[in-house]
Design a protein around this nucleic acid. Structure first.
Length: 663
RNA sequence: GGGCCCGUAGCUCAGCGGUUAGAGCAGGGGACUCAUAAUCCCUUGGUCGGAGGUUCGAAUCCUUCCGGGCCUACCA
């Protein structure tokens, strides 16, 4: 019997669970249920990730304490997960005494190993909010291309990377004030000292999916690893560092330790020995995470565990992101669906089944195609599998036969399929498991078709034959229910009730159930109603009115300030593609008379050159010319939108003439 | 600029060195009526992104080009 400790990534206490998160929790829950069904000793551990600047700021916005915020959010997360039949053995929080103690212990080991150093870090500081600003909390003008309204680390428009300290006219998005530059001492971990270990660990068989190992070597491990900044100066919501009391551990230091803290809570409750789970080789440790946090889990985390002499992960299972109908989840499209919203409209089994039918062991993104969702659930799951019980149970009033009848080898074949299905679950290739199960369901349906119980039913002399046919059909169905029970626990439970024996072990798929009464049949699952799906999307759709208020207004400016900007109507005389540029089109603008300008505009993804020629636009005519990679840009055209495909050029109403001033 | 991954039927994918390239859904035709408009049978549909190469043999290995996605370190 194996002993397994399984985790999912800790959801951040800053937001609610949505269908994107659920890919991971459903994936993990299926794996854990499979392991338990196999008779392995397996615990599923998770917790809320509660620390960091974002929590501090949100608590302020809601005028409540951080602890109140995270308590509320944890309750909500637990409820959402329960609604999707995701069963944790312990669901904790990183903000607990167990975590603080473990952080301290691991920190001391890292200190003792001589890996910690102090370095000065210069950052922007918001004096009004009294906090250092992470890059995402700074907006300003790009120091390279002068694009406005860019985030503090890089520019959407020219792709430049810089430090927020270099930005022109930076503004704190928290208070809309101008931040100051301040320095503070941070603590760094010299992770390069573990380079050799990480090189070997990431490469050695089985710890990572091959593409992840390739990525790490191609991207990080081919050069010296940079020191990891693990502290943040006050104010910060988190744990104080005992030997550096003005500093806090960065949230990514204490978050993975939360896996251990949550395990410790479980151990204390169960009377188990914590070291048995984290300090000995008898336990396999499996982390399930999304590809966005690969770096923390495959480099920092093993380094921390190695240094503090804890057990290293057996395997890190990494999955991709969720897209909906091929695009990122979007609030305006209504595809950013919260777990609780989903549950108001649809059965959680649908999503569990659909995700399972698409999950493989690779890091690829998973697309939730809404049309396909309906088809797979209705045709494959309900029509093919669940309906099998429906068409046989009704005729099985006398119960199952005493001896298993000749079924042409169907039961044996499906029993043998169990090996392949189990292997598929084990390797996280659930799509393969589902495919194999569906093939068995096809065979079972063919059997029923061929033996036509509805005809036998009409002939009183064929009762025994009818019983045999139902015995086969229901046993074939029960096999499927066992195989699907990690994905569809409720279906397994209903099947157990129908046939009078709960489904608890994988081996139940290997022996037919005989000589037992069959309960009264009730529908086990409804088909998806497209209307409910549409209602869910409608409820998730955020309208423009609410979406538009998200960006705070800029500082008040005087009329004179405004008049410094000379906006002119211009006609696009020519527009051409800039071959090597990702975002730029080269425009020739006519500003009235002979006045011509060349402008490089970052609108390539939203407009085709041929559609622009001849139209009127509004141009900033007195903007300082800018030397760009492809030539000199002598102005700027004004547009709304976030960039990419979401760019909307402004144009005057009919009658305006090139050269007219806009004011 | 660099890195990782992916391009197979309308859609979602399987096949990853060896018989005429497969499945499900969708499309077309038929059967059946037990069942949740279900199920069963037959059927249409692909120059396996393009071009080279290795090989007796390539969707499968290598090179290169094209197209797409993701990442590029104090938000990994």
């Amino acid at each position: 019997m194996r002993q397994l400790l399984v985790t999912s990534a800790l959801p951040y206490a800053n937001g609610h669970i949505h269908i994107g998160h659920l890919v991971e929790y459903i994936q993990t829950d299926i794996w854990v249920r499979f392991q338990k069904l196999q008779g392995n000793r397996c615990i599923y551990i998770c917790a809320d990730d509660t620390h960091g600047t974002a929590i501090m700021i949100r608590a302020r916005e809601e005028s409540i304490g951080e602890e109140e915020l995270i308590t509320k959010m944890q309750r909500s997360h637990i409820e959402d997960f329960a609604g999707f039949d995701i069963e944790f053995d312990n669901y904790g929080s990183t903000h607990c005494s167990e975590n603080r103690e473990l952080c301290e212990e691991i920190w001391n080991s890292i200190r003792e190993a001589g890996l910690v150093s102090q370095q000065e870090v210069t950052q922007l500081y918001d004096a009004e909010a009294d906090t250092f600003l992470a890059d995402r909390f700074v907006k300003g003008t790009c120091p390279k291309c002068a694009a406005e309204d860019q985030y503090g680390d890089s520019c959407d428009r020219c792709g430049a990377h810089y430090s927020p300290v270099e930005m022109v006219n930076p503004l704190s998005t928290l208070t809309n004030t101008t931040p100051e530059v301040r320095s503070a001492d941070h603590l760094f971990i010299n992770i390069e000292r573990l380079h050799g270990f990480l090189d070997e660990w990431t490469r050695s068989e089985g710890h990572l999916q091959p593409e992840v190992a390739n990525y790490l070597h191609g991207h990080f491990l081919h050069e010296p690893l940079r020191d990891w900044d693990v502290s943040r100066p006050a104010p910060y919501f988190g744990f104080n560092i005992p030997d550096s009391p003005d500093n806090y551990w960065y949230v990514w230091f204490d978050a993975p330790i939360g896996y251990m803290a949550s395990t410790r809570q479980w151990c204390d409750r169960q009377g188990e020995d914590f070291n048995d789970w984290w300090a000995g080789e008898q336990t396999e440790i499996h982390h399930f995470i999304g590809k966005d946090i690969t770096y923390f889990h495959t480099l920092f985390w093993p380094a921390m565990l190695k240094t503090s002499r804890y057990q290293l992960p057996t395997k890190i299972h990494i999955h991709g992101f969720l897209t909906v109908d091929g695009a990122k989840m979007s609030k305006t499209k209504g595809t950013f669906v919260c777990a609780s919203t989903y549950l108001k409209h649809l059965d959680p089994a649908y999503l569990r089944y659909y995700y399972a039918s698409k999950l493989t062991s690779r890091v690829d993104d998973l697309d939730l195609n809404l049309g396909e969702f309906v088809t797979r659930v209705n045709s494959d799951m309900v029509g093919n599998v669940v309906n099998l019980a429906s068409r046989a149970a009704k005729f099985a009033t006398v119960g199952l036969s005493e001896k298993y009848p000749d079924d042409g080898g169907l039961f044996r074949q499906a029993a043998q399929d169990g090996r392949e299905i189990a292997q598929a679950y084990e390797s996280c290739d659930y799509a393969r498991a589902i495919r194999t199960i569906l093939a068995a369901a096809d065979r079972a349906n063919r059997f029923v078709e061929h033996h036509a119980p509805w005809k036998l039913h009409k002939d009183p002399e064929k009762t025994a034959q009818l019983q045999d046919v139902c015995t086969v059909a229901l046993n074939l169905f029960r096999q499927l229910a066992v195989y699907l029970s990690p994905v569809l626990p409720r279906l397994a439970q209903q099947t157990g009730e129908l046939l009078g024996e709960p489904i608890e072990r994988w081996e139940q798929s290997q022996q037919p159930l005989l000589d037992t009464p069959v309960g009264k049949f009730k529908h086990m699952m409804q088909r998806v109603d497209r209307k409910h799906l549409e209602a869910m999307i409608a409820e998730s759709t955020e309208h423009d009115a609410t979406a538009g208020t998200a960006v705070p207004l800029a500082e008040t400016c005087s009329f004179d300030d405004f008049m410094k900007v000379d906006l002119r109507v211009a006609r696009v005389a020519a527009a051409e593609d800039v071959a090597d540029a990702k975002k730029l089109l080269k425009l020739t603008l006519n500003l009235g008379g002979d006045e011509q300008r060349t402008v490089f505009a970052g609108i390539k993804e939203a407009y085709r050159p041929e559609d622009l020629v001849g139209r009127l636009v509004v141009c900033v005519a007195n903007l300082a010319p800018r030397r760009m990679k492809f030539g000199l840009s002598e102005g700027m055209i004004v547009a709304a939108g976030d960039g990419g495909k979401e760019i909307f050029l402004l144009s005057p109403d009919d009658g305006a003439k090139p050269g007219q001033r806009v004011h």
